[in-house]
Write a protein that binds this DNA or RNA. Structure first.
Length: 500
RNA sequence: GUCCCCAUCGUCUAGACGGCCUAGGACAUCGGCCUUUCACGCCGACAACCGCGGUUCGAAUCCGCUUGGGGACGCCA
């Protein structure tokens, strides 16, 4: 079920969208998806994308979260136009707006305490009616005073209708709505009020937001009417659910964008995955960023909630990993090479650039995340003396395998050019000469060079590591084996560096 | 309770005009092939139109109801 966008709704170049998070937590995956949709819509139509921080709740808003949200947006490369707007800097604007509504008779002062209002609500609830404020102060002609709020004088009847970009035509009865508070007793503006004032002031043309805001929309439309302003186009994207099909939230294990960053996910992959949650383009799954901008026109948005699937995210990430050039992956990978393990520490140095790029090229198709890739690169980048072996790997090698290793060590040391073809020829010749299967030598070589029985093409590994490093790693393995008495120093085995 | 929304494989989804759908793709799962191990890749399998009525020559597609799920009912955002 979907609604195809009607081009008539859009004025090319005139589209202005916004993302308006409140800094009461990190940007999690659900919020990020909304941000992606808003950003894409603006970019597709060559319009503007505004970032507004809704920090009117002084109690819960924290600078740390604002910073984190901004960092997440940058990390996802969702660039916004102009400076971020902070609502707490705009209280004067909201005050002035309240005054206008008061003056035009669209709002009034209310002296009811939160307790009275709650009691009235409770009463309505118990009578099976919609809990709403009864408007008792509406015609009292009250003025400002301590503890007093300003409420909207909402119409008692009529229908409020609008065409939702994703849901189609929606209608609400005015009688369902009550006289909402616009200005709190402490003078701060309420959410619905500040949103409308700002969206109008910033000429927002398209409000794309979570489904949990549909019920706010008729209230906001009422406010636009009170101001005599034209409402924007609204679009409510379905909620994203956790794998457990519960609404995605912090306490339901919704991870933040920054956590995925730490886990080694590529920004483009995250954006790709997120946008496919509730949007589709035929059978396509993998999109580059610019393709998304080109393809996403606000249509084809799904109406039903979508569950987040970590496994598919992993797959999308793997796809992006392999599509990138090693040079493009390198800067993303650096932090993971640096923090993980001792051996990879100098990997970022210029001297190692070629080696690192070769490793990326060799391994990028095998890794699902940057973290994963860095882990797979580590044994290759680690000097022989620091190489660690997987539990039981050395011990698992048979005497014959050690023999092959010792022999191969000599033959490999003797090759003229240390390139893939030559190395392969040497190993292949040995295998045929002895009437072996390749795996008879592949396994011990992998253990010696990678510290594990599994890994990429071992000839490629040798070439990437280079002549010295390969020799050093073979020597070390042999030495350890001799030390543990797994190979007899006799039998004509030349084990360099072995002192018996 | 009241209001709003949603409903295709386990998951993300395709499915403009109802017939091309014995429902397609992708992730996951399970087989097999490839192979130098693992991974990749390739091939294949499993697997869905919530139910009931109606409209129609014909419905996953339109209408109604039921059921199930979600959301909202704050001087939070």
């Amino acid at each position: 079920m979907q609604v195809t966008s009607s081009p008539a709704l859009f004025t090319p170049g005139g589209v202005v969208t916004r993302f308006a998070p409140s800094p009461t937590g990190h940007l999690h995956i659900g919020g990020a998806r909304t941000a992606v949709f808003c950003w894409l819509l603006a970019r597709h139509y060559g319009g503007r994308f505004v970032l507004r921080i809704e920090d009117t709740d002084l109690e819960r808003s924290r600078q740390e979260y604002t910073d984190s949200i901004l960092a997440s947006m940058r990390r996802l490369k969702l660039d916004w136009d102009g400076d971020p707007i902070f609502q707490k800097d705009r209280f004067a604007v909201y005050d002035a707006a309240v005054e206008r509504l008061l003056a035009s008779g669209h709002a009034y002062w209310c002296a009811c305490s939160p307790e009275t209002v709650e009691a009235a609500r409770e009463k309505a609830r118990s009578e099976g009616k919609k809990p709403r404020y009864d408007g008792r102060c509406r015609n009292l002609g009250l003025g400002p005073g301590p503890g007093r709020t300003v409420r909207l004088a909402a119409p008692a009847e009529g229908r409020i209708e609008f065409d939702d970009m994703v849901k189609g035509r929606l209608a609400f009865e005015a009688s369902e709505l009550d006289d909402m508070v616009l200005r709190r007793a402490d003078g701060s503006p309420t959410y619905n009020f500040s949103v409308v004032v700002d969206d109008a002031a910033m000429n927002i043309t398209h409000v794309l937001r979570g489904d949990d805001h549909v019920n706010n929309t008729p209230r906001q439309i009422l406010l636009y009417r009170a101001f005599g302003a034209e409402p924007p186009v609204f679009g409510h994207v379905p909620m994203s659910l956790g794998p457990d099909r519960q609404k995605l939230s912090k306490r339901h294990g919704a991870k933040s964008v920054m956590e995925y960053d730490k886990d080694g996910f590529l920004p483009d992959a995250l954006v790709n995955y997120l946008v496919r949650l509730g949007w589709s383009c035929g059978d396509r799954e993998i999109f580059e960023r610019d393709e998304l901008v080109q393809l996403f026109d606000g249509g084809n948005l799904n109406r039903s909630p979508a569950a987040f699937d970590p496994q598919k995210l992993l797959w999308v990430n793997a796809e992006h990993m392999r599509r990138n050039a090693p040079e493009a992956l390198l800067p993303e990978l650096l932090p993971f090479l640096k923090t993980d393990g001792e051996g990879g520490a100098q990997a970022g140095a210029d001297a190692d650039r070629k080696l690192v790029l070769a490793c990326i090229g060799m391994l990028q198709g095998r890794a699902r995340t940057l973290k994963d890739l860095a882990g797979q690169m580590r044994p290759v980048l680690t000097p022989a003396d620091d190489l660690t072996y997987a539990e039981g790997a050395l011990e698992s090698l048979e005497p014959d395998e050690w023999t092959h290793l010792a022999e191969l060590r000599e033959r490999l040391a003797a090759v003229e050019t240390f390139d893939r073809d030559t190395l392969h020829a040497v190993v292949q010749a040995y295998v045929e000469e002895k009437g072996l299967k390749f795996k008879a030598v592949g396994r011990p070589l992998r253990v010696a060079l990678l510290g594990a029985v599994n890994g990429p093409d071992i000839v490629q590994v040798m070439q990437a590591a280079g002549r010295e490093d390969t020799a050093a790693k073979l020597d070390r393995a042999l030495k350890l084996a001799a030390g543990a008495g797994r190979i007899q120093p006799t039998g004509g085995l030349a084990v360099p560096g072995n002192h018996g």
